[in-house]
Each structure stands twice: as C-alpha cells, then as structure tokens.
C-alpha cells in the first residue's frame, strides 16, 4: 500500500478503493508499480492515473502480463494516445486481449469499418 500513499492517494481514497476491491490488500507494491508504469508508458499523467485507480480499483488486481497483452492489442487494432481512452473509460482496463478481439470481430460482423470500431471503443464506454 505504501506505493499508493507515495503516489499521493489519501487514506480515505485508499479505503474507498479497498472497499470496492477488497483484494487490493494482497497486491504487492512491485505489482502496483508495474501497473502504474504501464499507464505512464501509455501517456498517462498522475491525474489520469488517480482517476483510473479511483474509478476502477479492479485495475489494481489485474495481472501485469495480461494488461500488457491487452494494451498491445489496442495498439494492434489501431488505437493511439491511449491515455485519452483510459481517462475517459477506466473500466476498459478490465478487458482482456481476448475480450477485445471478440468485440472487434463482432463489430466487423455487424458491418462496421475499422474507423467506426475505433470510435466506438474510444467514446462508447466499452468494457
């Protein structure tokens, strides 16, 4: 938990996150660092990261490798400036690369083109 305090979260904010996701207690500081690092690499600033954690405390218990695969998949399908997406829709970070792949192909089957799918992902609170 130290890493969250050092990041600037208040005790009340940490409590609120733990009330929502009681498994946070079992996550190591190393994993939290790595999860923060992933977001920073995607362009997130501290205020975005704070919004993501408070809105979606379940991100804190995600597997680092799985999140990396998911982000890789976002880039593969053509998304960029991911911090904008994560700040708008922190819940999307609970998806797996498999979920995203399935979503993408469902939309293709529905007749959407790539740009329409990317806009849907960016602005339709997909999760």
């Amino acid at each position: 938990m130290d890493v969250l305090i050092r990041f600037g979260f208040t005790i009340d904010e940490i409590k609120s996150m733990m009330d929502t996701n009681n498994l946070i207690d079992s996550v190591s500081d190393k994993d939290i660092y790595e999860l923060i690092d992933i977001l920073e690499k995607a362009g997130c600033q501290d205020s975005h990261i704070k919004n993501i954690f408070l809105c979606n405390p379940f991100y804190l218990t995600r597997d680092v490798l799985e999140v990396n695969h998911f982000i890789q998949k976002l880039y593969e399908i053509g998304l960029s400036s991911l911090f904008v997406l994560f700040d708008s829709n922190p819940y999307i970070l609970n998806m797996s690369d498999r979920d995203l792949d399935q979503f993408y192909h469902e939309k293709i089957k529905e007749g959407m083109n790539k740009e329409e799918i990317l806009d849907t992902i960016n602005y339709s609170m997909v999760f």
């Binding site: 205020s47 704070k50 919004n51 408070l54 809105c55 979606n56 700040d87 829709n89 922190p90 819940y91 609170m125």
Partner: peptide, 13 residues
C-alpha cells in the same frame, strides 16, 4: 451513469 465512477477532481476540472 458513469459519472458515479470518475474521480471527483477529474469531473470538477
């Protein structure tokens, strides 16, 4: 309904 999720500082700004 997603308004219930965001950090209030983010919404405030």
């Amino acid at each position: 309904p997603f308004l219930f999720g965001y950090d209030m500082d983010t919404i405030h700004n």
